[in-house]
């Protein structure tokens, strides 16, 4: 027995083996760090590249002008307006439906097969490629409901696309409301809806807002479904009503990037800068709103 034990100790204490294992660990550590930093480097390079190409082209005229055959005269005004109108309308449509669905699923729906089915369905919808929503929009809103290739049709399409995001994040926010607060409300003789509006939604609003902003960001950056719905890539007028045809920032950028003239690549970069600035602004607003409504509970 004692011989065997000594052998084992020698094997375990083997300094060469231990050193090798340690080196392996160090190497792996470095490799993993590189993987993680890869994203950072790409992001930095991407932003640098776009700023370098686009900044010289960014000007007040670029914001105010309409697209043109000449890179120097090209502007982003109709696309900017189209994007803003689109996300506004999309939010107006998707927000009440999304939050309402979340309230329904968390507070009203029974614990049954049908509720499970709705939840499963929402999870599936969240994974459907965005271009498929475009085809739905084309068949239903543009053609069947006769909205044409309008901002309205685009907004309904986008609203359905972002609905799962709003529903799922609102559900999580509603689930985080402490049970004791709900009980306190019910114990004061309130109905379900009164408890929803009096306690649950005020408490859940930061989480709901975060999800909504995520969905607005998504709607701002999406191009594929709108191309299918029939947004134009060249718009020489500013949309004035929701029934007008339209373009958006990503579609305009796509259009410029596919032009053969080299300068249009830089115009596209300038457009990307505008798009990223709006995304940044939207997300900052979200963070400010969230912090403002954040409720800190004392234990």
């Amino acid at each position: 027995m004692s011989v065997l034990k000594e052998d084992l100790v020698r094997l375990i204490d083997n300094p060469v083996g231990l050193r090798r294992r340690k080196i392996k660990n160090k190497f792996f550590h470095g490799l993993l760090f590189l993987c993680t930093i890869f994203g950072v480097v790409v992001l930095a390079f991407l932003l640098y590249d776009i700023l370098k190409k686009g900044l010289p082209w960014l000007s007040v005229d670029f914001i105010k002008n309409f697209p043109s055959r000449f890179p120097k005269k090209s502007g982003i005004y109709p696309a900017l307006l189209g994007s803003l109108m689109l996300i506004l309308l999309t939010t107006v449509i998707a927000f009440p439906v999304g939050v309402g669905t979340a309230v329904y699923l968390e507070e009203y729906a029974g614990n049954n097969k049908f509720t499970e089915f709705i939840k499963l369905n929402i999870a599936n919808l969240a994974g459907v490629p965005s271009i498929i929503y475009g085809m739905l929009g084309l068949a239903v809103f543009v053609r069947a409901l006769g909205m044409g290739r309008s901002i309205l049709a685009g907004s309904f399409t986008m609203a359905l696309l972002v609905l799962p995001i709003i529903i799922i994040s609102s559900q999580e926010a509603i689930r985080s409301v402490p049970g004791i607060l709900k009980q306190a409300s019910y114990a004061l003789g309130t109905t379900k809806w009164q408890t929803v509006t009096g306690v649950i939604l005020p408490y859940a609003i930061p989480g709901i807002l975060t999800g909504t902003i995520l969905s607005v960001s998504r709607a701002l950056g999406e191009a594929a479904p709108l191309i299918v719905v029939g947004a134009l890539s060249y718009v020489s007028f500013a949309p004035s009503s929701v029934m007008d045809s339209f373009t958006t920032l990503p579609i305009q950028i796509f259009n410029w990037a596919s032009m053969p003239k080299k300068d249009f690549q830089n115009v596209a970069a300038a457009g990307i800068i505008v798009l990223l600035i709006i995304l940044l602004a939207v997300n900052s607003i979200a963070i400010i709103l969230r912090d403002k409504y954040q409720i800190r509970m004392k234990d």
Binding site: L181, Q183, A184, S185, V199, M297
Partner: peptide, 8 residues
Amino acid sequence: FQRPNPFP
């Protein structure tokens, strides 16, 4: 209730 639960 058992724990004080004022609304926020």
